[in-house]
């Protein structure tokens, strides 16, 4: 943005390799988008007023605007509701674009702190989000202290971690994988 004002987006900075990368990360139908806006009319991100909601994310992606997309945290606001996937007339599978951008962001550690929190939990406990501090109450109503999931099954959790270590997490996790 050498000469333009602060609000001007410089298209010259576009990075074609970003589009390729997103395709490889699952956004296979990205270029099919005709910017009709059908997804945006139903996406909770847009309804909640996020600046970069699904349609704009796809357009910015198609323009190769890597920095803008990765610096913005909107993709993390996606609710995975998949409404966009259901309505898109061009079979872009917009949600896959969100996922691809997230994958690209993770690779360069460009995501909000709570994302890492979630990841760490996933690795450690087998859940990104899980109820903590309910042990007493659970006991009171006659339930086991921990729910019958990976949380209460060390054996399974170990296997699960092994699986995770074979994913890209091995490369990108900002915490030690024991």
């Amino acid at each position: 943005m050498e000469e333009g004002g602060v609000n001007v987006i410089d298209l010259t900075q576009a990075d074609e390799s970003f589009i390729k990368e997103l395709k490889e990360l699952g956004a296979e139908e990205l270029k099919e988008c005709i910017q009709c806006g059908k997804c945006a009319s139903t996406c909770p991100m847009a309804l909640a007023g996020l600046e970069f909601f699904i349609k704009r994310i796809i357009h910015a992606a198609n323009l190769g605007l890597r920095d803008i997309l990765l610096e913005d945290s909107s993709v993390w606001g996606c609710q995975s509701c998949n409404r966009c996937v259901e309505v898109c007339p061009m079979d872009v599978v917009p949600y896959e674009v969100i996922q691809a951008v997230r994958r690209a962001a993770i690779k360069v550690e460009s995501c909000p702190a709570n994302t890492y929190e979630g990841l760490r939990n996933l690795y450690k406990f087998g859940h990104a989000v899980f109820p903590k501090g309910f042990e007493e109450r659970r006991k009171k109503v006659g339930l086991p202290e921990k729910p019958p999931t990976a949380l209460s099954n060390e054996e399974l959790l170990k296997k699960y971690r092994e699986v995770l270590r074979q994913t890209i997490l091995e490369e990108i996790a900002p915490f030690p994988l024991d």
Partner: peptide, 17 residues
């Protein structure tokens, strides 16, 4: 050549060399 326009899908003024 510097080209100046508005991108309504980005909701932003844009420019291109």
């Amino acid at each position: 050549l510097r080209v100046r326009a508005f991108d309504s899908d980005l909701c932003s003024p844009v420019e291109l060399e």
